[in-house]
Design a protein around this nucleic acid. Structure first.
Lengths: 322, 322
DNA sequence: CAGAATTGATACAAGATCTGTATCAATCGC
DNA sequence: GCGATTGATACAGATCTTGTATCAATTCTG
């Protein structure tokens, strides 16, 4: 019972006329008769009553007509689906990300997916950078947004976003009113840090910046979410260095000030397993994400504006919380 | 994308090894390679990554594997279904019947269907004899239980059941206490009859019996259900001749007595359109119904017992209502 | 590091299957 | 009864499928 005979059968069942059906199939009549007879033989079932004047379906034929139509339609759908998957219009993308990506364009990326690749089944998996890298190697996610300063070994990636750290102080802090602060001014404060385990690079960036400023920070707390860090600071439990994006979190009790020293930046990399690129859906997704990435302005220019006090809308938002 | 290649693909996708897959398909390896390559060409999609050391599925291949399995399974099911329909194990039977069949073995027939032809989709359609005959001709039902005295023209059938009429009188009737009554004793009573339109044969049987007894019955009411007839009599609106089965209806206010004269019997025929016999499910159903039919005792024997006053359990039930 | 073993790909020929042309037998309508 | 129409049949050519023999590439083993 192959597909060809099924198709012949379906058309004949619709037409109930060998000649017309053959014509519709771009076929001459004898092969059609031959094929149908063969189908009947291999099923051991009469499908048509040929009256040498008209053709009618047997009850079994009626059933097969219904089933054959469904089968052929499904076959067609399967073919379309496979083609769509092959060129990335359809498929599944499991996207790893840290919570802060919600402030760094993830919603826009999701919107783009809906617009450009509506058939792609996009599922988001929030997890730490370390977990994402492991998950990528295990093929548990397809793409990740991790906080590193270079491509992790065994993975490919590009820098999706970078921004400086800013100081996050309790509103009651002695320097809370300052617009700009030197790191060394915080050398005696308790520090709240992002979990070393979840994102080693962040941890080391911050420690490193402090060391450059000439002191060893007093690490008091380690939290697993950036909002928890800000919340902690807002409650007076210490100070923190946080990616500038966090300034838009609007948590009452916390203020943000730019840092005089050049700190290491908070970098977000989009990473994937090299082999994944053969998955067209991944390749298409990557192109989409690259198009969504914030413009990477040369670092020099941005620094100049900061030191001169020229503030972008984002900079202005910095002071709005208190 | 024919079924053969799909089957090859499915096995290869499971095995991930051309040699083993070919062996499993009772095939040598080159044809398998050829077929898979051909499938890939005609879809325009790479399905496997051949590493000359191992074979892996592409994302499109993974999707096709899932779909191919479903398609092949459904194809197989379709084949089984068509075969089952062809020999009557599966199918649809629409059974027409008058309400009184519920007292004449219809429940037993339904039970037998469940037991012997569980896959057959049996649906019951209550309708009058006339409607059934029309429905049979229009192929709206497959079998009918009608009240006629011979096979309707254009249909085949057999006598499923036959029983005498009994008189149904109000409990307050002057002859209510009689066990046996002559029809002529009712010549001045009002008669309640079963709807002439729904079952002309019943109507004519009853009128005919009265004429034989020497009087023209006084037809007062025509009702569409036998239970309504009995109910009408119970309320004192007249007398009726009803099939003996109705005696088991237990309606308060009605009594039943056998009739001295030999009345025409109430006959139930199982009928069908001759062409329907080519539907194996109909043929199987007919055999089943014949096996369920009450034993057709020769008429003479039954009459003898009636006139001698020997009562079967059914006869005894006759007097229980009042 | 060389050779054996295993993998899938290729070439080619034989066989099976499918299709078209020509023709036939049966039925229906006039 | 005759012509028109229907599906079946015969047969030949084209296409597709399969098997044998062989090859190139890679991996494992000694």
């Amino acid at each position: 019972m192959d597909a060809r005979k099924l198709r012949y059968f379906a058309v004949l069942a619709d037409e109930r006329h060998f000649g017309r059906a053959a014509q519709k199939l771009s076929l001459s009549q004898p092969p059609l008769s031959y094929a149908i007879r063969q189908l009947e033989t291999e099923l051991g079932v009469k499908l048509f009553v040929r009256n040498s004047r008209n053709v009618r379906l047997t009850p079994a034929g009626v059933v097969l007509q219904r089933e054959a139509q469904a089968l052929l339609r499904r076959m067609d759908e399967t073919e379309q689906l496979v083609k769509a998957v092959a060129d990335g219009r359809d498929g599944q993308i499991r996207l790893g990300f840290g919570g802060s990506m919600l402030y760094r364009g993830l919603p826009a990326i999701v919107d783009e997916f809906r617009a450009q690749l509506p058939a792609v089944d996009l599922s988001l998996r929030e997890m730490g950078s370390t977990d994402q890298i492991e998950a990528l190697h295990r093929d548990e996610i397809d793409l990740g947004f991790v906080h590193v300063r270079t491509t992790p070994t065994g993975l490919d990636g590009f820098r999706y976003h970078a921004e400086p750290f800013v100081a996050c102080l309790p509103a009651t802090h002695r320097h809370a009113k300052a617009r700009r602060i030197s790191l060394s001014q915080l050398h005696r404060d308790d520090f709240v840090l992002f979990s070393r385990k979840r994102s080693p690079d962040y941890y080391e960036s911050i420690i490193g910046s402090c060391l450059s400023a000439g002191f060893v920070p007093n690490v008091r707390h380690e939290l697993a979410h950036w909002l928890s860090v800000v919340s902690c600071v807002a409650n007076g439990l210490g100070v923190a260095l946080v990616p500038r994006t966090l300034a838009s979190s609007r948590l009452a009790g916390a203020v943000f000030c730019t840092i005089a020293e050049e700190t290491i930046k908070s970098e977000t990399w989009c990473v994937w397993k090299p082999k994944s690129l053969s998955n067209a859906a991944v390749a298409k997704s990557l192109a989409l994400i690259k198009a969504c990435a914030p413009v990477q302005r040369p670092a020099r220019q941005r620094r100049a504006r900061m030191t001169r006090g020229v503030r972008s809308p984002r900079d202005r938002a910095l002071r709005r919380t208190s």
